[in-house]
């Protein structure tokens, strides 16, 4: 989904501000929300992709205004409302990873799809329709686009693809620099 969470390359957000003596949690409620979210996920109420998808569904203006844990609290409320009535699938059920069947190899030139789905995806906007080189191969891992909706797992290889900064940003990119992104196989062509 092309929403506010997809921040890579956006302008206007200002300086990176590092707080002096920053505590782990700024308020006790943040610590509790952190614990609740992790416990609920481990208990099998939802998976990590569903959690991310739910956070991303916050209306963009609210997303940008909210603090990190405010987003978590909001998402936790919506996840409970969405999932609360269902029987909990035990998250300890063993998932056997199928063998890796990679179509690309290290060193291959690949191009990312220009896909703009409304659903949750991990192909950031700034990296769509771009050419890069496969650096590393991993997995397979379940495709988030599917797992975020509680559907049966679709296992795919994940490639670390290196893009030249100028390929991503045009003249604004430094000629010496690169950005490497981890991409599921179906994001590539």
């Amino acid at each position: 989904m092309n929403e506010a969470h997809d921040l890579g390359g956006q302008h206007g957000h200002g300086r990176v501000v590092a707080e002096k003596n920053e505590p782990v949690f700024h308020e006790p409620w943040e610590g509790r929300v952190h614990a609740l979210m992790n416990l609920a996920r481990r208990a099998g109420l939802f998976n990590l992709d569903e959690m991310r998808r739910t956070i991303e569904q916050m209306p963009p203006a609210e997303y940008l205004r909210a603090s990190y844990f405010e987003r978590w609290l909001d998402a936790l409320e919506r996840l409970i409302a969405e999932k609360g009535g269902e029987p909990i699938k035990p998250s300890s059920s063993p998932t056997t990873r199928p063998p890796l069947d990679a179509h690309f190899k290290v060193g291959d030139q690949v191009r990312t799809r220009n896909a703009n789905p409304r659903h949750h995806t991990r192909l950031a906007r700034y990296a769509r329709g771009k050419s890069g080189v496969v650096e590393l191969i991993h997995g397979p891992y379940p495709l988030p686009d599917v797992r975020a909706y509680g559907k049966a797992l679709t296992w795919q290889p994940v490639y670390t693809v290196r893009f030249r900064a100028q390929e991503l940003w045009g003249g604004e990119g430094d000629p010496h620099d690169s950005v490497s992104i981890d991409l599921w196989e179906e994001y590539l062509e």
Partner: peptide
């Protein structure tokens, strides 16, 4: 989060325990 961690977190602003890089 242990009781101690909560109490450490309770010290805020000028009373916050000194940290460098998260430690």
């Amino acid at each position: 989060m242990s009781e101690v961690d909560r109490e450490v977190a309770d010290l805020k602003g000028p009373a916050a325990m000194p940290r460098r890089n998260g430690e």
